[in-house]
Nucleic acid binder design. Structure first.
Length: 507
RNA sequence: GGCCCCUUCGUCUAGUGGUUAGGACGCAAGGUUUUCAUCCUUGAAACAGGAGUUCGAUUCUCCUAGGGGCUGCCA
């Protein structure tokens, strides 16, 4: 069996969204499990849509997700260059071959003329006019123009495009690994532009030529490409490569969480959910869209979540490391239907990974967030905070946002609890407790608990009367880790200060 | 509009010509926890509709509906 070689071929027209990352992921998993090669090819044949920084963004996103590239523009490889704009000359040879063999022709129609033709046909009731076997007869191309006229135009340097000459009445069958055989009628297809007036190929030609030259064995891409696959099959045939044509697998799309349509940037803005792997700042508008990374997602969780959007292992296991995914992945188990992205499930995945991390690791991951907030804390202290908070967090930043009281004095007290529980019968209790705590050395949770309990007994009070108040004094809220743990970690001095502050305020 | 793809709980999905249609997220209830969270238990929740094939269809076929994609000198 020949080597498995797959490619991820984005165009650098903006940030990758999670559908793109998932496509990259499936390619990557397939390559790794079959000991094949994972190739990155930048499809930048449309210079008009080039967005600065997009290629770097793609690279960084893949790298963050742990999808290491074997061959690509940065790492090179035996079939480079891996940027289509640098392969200009390569395509020329093949477009000329198609021309020579009569499978393609030159068309001199200006964009205006094309638009006029379409407008005319729309008026005649054709909602999507095509440049095809019928209409090409009325257009300016090397099929309709006299040979000398063509020569003249060429000599004059008149711009032209090269179009495929779509055959009539042919059935073109596409074998898709996910959907089985899909067949198309060539009459329904149009004479797609293969080479643009600027001399660069369109996706269709470049993609077929490169996949062949780069010895791609499997084309795993989004479902939006299925309708143009018959065109690609024809191109392989006309170029004489049908025997070694890659296998195709068209992935179902990722749909938006609510409503209709596929996931888009607007959904992210509207629903406050990330749609990009890492934060993207639009160079034109300066607008920033937050990424999964910046939201606090672990790359492992992100990848795990993504893998399950359209694929499943056929077992009950849901938590997978990248290596486990590589072992378990199979194209056969990719679903056919579009998958709706669910932020709640994504959150759950992240929480599962967070729970697995040890306290020190969490602490070092939390550190950058604290620095951003201007919060200082000792390493050992941070580790302890993580130990107490990790059961309560789904994301690293939650450890801070849900546990600010570990790093700063309480700003706001839960007034409902204060109103309900802070009364004249508990006030003396805390005055006495404060005194008892003063004498505890070392200030450890068992001793603190003992002090609280014995004072409770003395005053004949119940946990429910006392503990919520103690908690609000120290944390401001009734939610949080076991209160004696919190007290110990805060330390005697801080605990006493917070008690004083509270009692003064609500005296 | 045309072409193509798709359709199991709200969501991600498993599954089979005869099953109590399974799991996960979320939701609800209960338990554990002095709180919150975790954890445990339980519950509600689905085969789009209609024909046909069949002793029997969620499963196979067709039709309908719904959803999605494509329909550019974009990818």
């Amino acid at each position: 069996m020949s080597e498995i070689r797959v490619r991820f071929a984005p165009s650098p027209t903006g940030p990758l969204h999670i559908g793109g990352v998932r496509t990259a992921l499936y390619n990557f998993l397939f390559a790794r499990q079959s000991k094949g090669r994972f190739i990155l090819r930048i499809e930048d044949t449309d210079q008009k849509r080039f967005v600065p920084g997009a290629e770097e963004y793609i690279l960084e996103s893949l790298s963050w997700a742990g999808l290491n590239i074997d061959e690509g523009p940065v790492q090179g490889g035996p079939y480079g260059p891996y940027r289509q704009s640098e392969r200009r000359d390569i395509y020329k040879k093949y477009s000329e071959q198609l021309l020579k063999d009569g499978h393609a022709y030159m068309a001199f129609d200006t964009p205006e003329e094309l638009e006029a033709m379409r407008e005319r046909m729309r008026k005649e009731g054709n909602p999507s006019p095509q440049y095809n076997a019928i209409t090409r007869q009325y257009m300016k191309n090397s099929l309709t123009l006299p040979a000398d006229e063509v020569e003249k135009r060429l000599a004059a340097g008149e711009p032209y495009v090269i179009r495929i000459k779509m055959p009539r009445n042919e059935e073109v069958k596409v074998k898709d690994l996910i959907r089985g055989w899909v067949s198309f009628q060539s009459n329904q297809l149009d004479d797609k532009v293969l080479v643009k007036a600027d001399g660069l190929p369109t996706y269709h030609l470049a993609n077929v030529v490169d996949d062949h030259l780069m010895k791609i064995s499997h084309v795993i891409r989004g479902e939006e490409w299925l309708p143009s696959t018959p065109l690609h099959v024809l191109l392989y045939r006309y170029l004489g490569w049908e025997e070694s044509m890659p296998e195709f697998a068209h992935l179902p799309l990722i749909l938006r969480p609510d409503g209709k349509g596929k996931l888009s940037k607007r959904d992210g803005d509207r629903l406050g959910i990330p749609v990009y792997p890492i934060t993207w700042k639009d160079p034109a508008s300066g607008e920033e869209s937050m990424g999964f990374r910046e939201k606090g997602f672990f790359p492992e969780a992100f990848v795990n979540m993504l893998a399950f959007l359209g694929w499943n292992p056929g077992s009950d296991q849901e938590i997978f490391s990248l290596d486990e995914l590589i072992k378990a992945f199979s194209i056969e188990r990719i679903g056919k239907a579009g998958a709706r992205f669910d932020i709640e499930k994504a959150r759950w995945f992240n929480q599962q990974f967070l729970k697995q991390k040890d306290d020190a690791e969490l602490a070092s991951m939390l550190r950058p967030y604290l620095e951003k907030e201007g919060v200082k804390a000792e390493d050992a202290y941070l580790v302890q905070v993580c130990r107490l908070m990790k059961e309560r967090a789904a994301f690293i930043p939650d450890i801070y946002s849900e546990g600010k009281y570990f790093f700063a004095p309480v700003e706001a007290y839960d007034e409902k609890i204060v109103a309900k529980k802070w009364n004249d019968s508990v006030k003396p209790f805390f005055t006495a407790l404060r005194q008892r705590l003063t004498d505890i050395n070392p200030f450890e949770k068992e001793e603190i608990e003992k002090a609280v309990k014995s004072e409770m007994e003395l005053k004949g009070m119940k946990f429910g009367q006392v503990l919520p108040v103690f908690r609000v004094m120290l944390c401001g809220t009734v939610a949080g880790p076991p209160i004696f743990d919190v007290a110990e970690l805060l330390g005697k001095e801080e605990v006493l200060m917070r008690m004083d502050r509270f009692m003064e305020r609500y005296a």
